[in-house]
């Protein structure tokens, strides 16, 4: 069922969440503003903030995918992407 702000979440991620809403996910939340209010709302949605950057305003969080439904409608949330794995580039 569609929800407000759903377009901020890539389709593949939406499907992943729909398939396993309680599974812990690692996500990057691109935001328009950072602060105590945003942190509180992110934690209320069930997420742990792992990292925060300011050069591009972004929270790296982990927690159940279902929590995004509550966050997606927030005006300060610009878009969401998966916090993908990276590796050394040694053969």
């Amino acid at each position: 069922m569609p929800y407000e702000g759903q377009e901020k979440i890539p389709l593949a991620l939406q499907r992943q969440i729909a398939g396993a809403p309680d599974q812990t996910m690692y996500l990057l939340l691109h935001v328009s503003e950072t602060g105590a209010a945003q942190l509180a709302e992110i934690e209320r949605a069930g997420y742990v903030v792992r990292q925060q950057t300011s050069i591009i305003p972004c929270y790296a969080v982990s927690g159940p995918g279902r929590g995004l439904q509550a966050l997606a409608k927030k005006a300060w949330l610009v878009k969401v992407e998966e916090d993908s794995a990276v590796h050394t580039m040694q053969e």
Binding site: Y26, L28, R50, Q51, Q52, T53, S54, I55, I56, C58, A60, D83, S84, A85, V86, H87, T88, Q90
Partner: peptide, 22 residues
């Protein structure tokens, strides 16, 4: 930014980059 197994997440790298640049 990467664990001793040679892997990490983008966010770890982003945090490391930001610290380096600043």
């Amino acid at each position: 930014a990467l664990a001793d197994n040679g892997s990490g997440r983008m966010s770890n790298v982003m945090a490391g980059l930001e610290w380096s640049a600043q």
